[in-house]
Amino acid sequence: MSSIPPEINREMRGHTFYPTEADSIPPLYAQDSKGKDAIAYVHYFGPALDAYVTEYDPKTGEAFGWVMLNNDLPNAELGYIDLPAYESYSYKAIWPFAERDLHFDPKPLRECIAEVERRFGA
Rank of each mutant, 00 (worst) to 15 (best):
D32W: 14
R10K: 10
E21C: 05
E62W: 04
T54A: 06
L102T: 11
L49D: 02
F64I: 11
C112A: 10
E7K: 10
A30W: 04
P108F: 08
C112R: 02
V53L: 06
G65P: 01
T60V: 03
R10F: 05
P26H: 07
N71Y: 12
A48E: 09
Y89M: 09
D50T: 07
L28I: 07
D50P: 03
E117S: 11
E55Q: 10
L28K: 04
S24I: 05
A114R: 14
A40E: 03
Y29C: 09
N9E: 10
K107H: 12
I94M: 14
Q31L: 07
P6W: 10
E117M: 11
E21L: 09
W95I: 14
P58E: 01
H103M: 13
L69Y: 13
N9Q: 09
E99F: 10
K34S: 08
A51H: 02
G46H: 05
I4W: 07
A114Y: 15
D23N: 08
W66D: 02
A51M: 06
E62A: 06
P74S: 14
P6Y: 10
D37S: 10
Y91T: 06
N71C: 09
F104R: 03
A98I: 00
E55P: 03
Y18E: 01
P27K: 03
G121S: 11
D57H: 00
D105S: 15
A98H: 00
Y29M: 13
L49Y: 07
A98W: 00
Y18R: 03
A76D: 01
D72A: 09
V53G: 01
G35N: 11
D105L: 13
K92C: 15
P58C: 02
Y41F: 09
M12Q: 14
E11H: 14
A93L: 15
Q31N: 09
M1N: 15
E117D: 13
R100W: 06
T54M: 01
L109H: 02
F17L: 06
D50C: 07
D57T: 00
R13E: 04
G14T: 10
H103V: 11
A122H: 11
K59C: 02
D37E: 12
E21D: 11
P74A: 12
H15W: 05
Y52T: 00
I4Y: 08
E115K: 12
P96Y: 08
I8S: 11
F120Q: 06
M12W: 15
A30V: 07
R119W: 14
A114D: 07
P106G: 04
R13M: 13
A38H: 04
E11C: 12
V42Y: 03
A48M: 12
E87V: 00
P47G: 15
S3I: 02
W66Q: 03
E87Y: 00
R13S: 05
A30F: 06
P47Q: 12
P74D: 10
W66I: 06
D23C: 09
M1Y: 11
R110C: 11
Y89R: 10
W66V: 04
S88G: 13
E55C: 07
D50I: 04
P96V: 14
G46R: 01
Y41L: 02
E77P: 06
L28F: 04
D23P: 03
Y86C: 02
D23E: 08
L69G: 09
A76C: 06
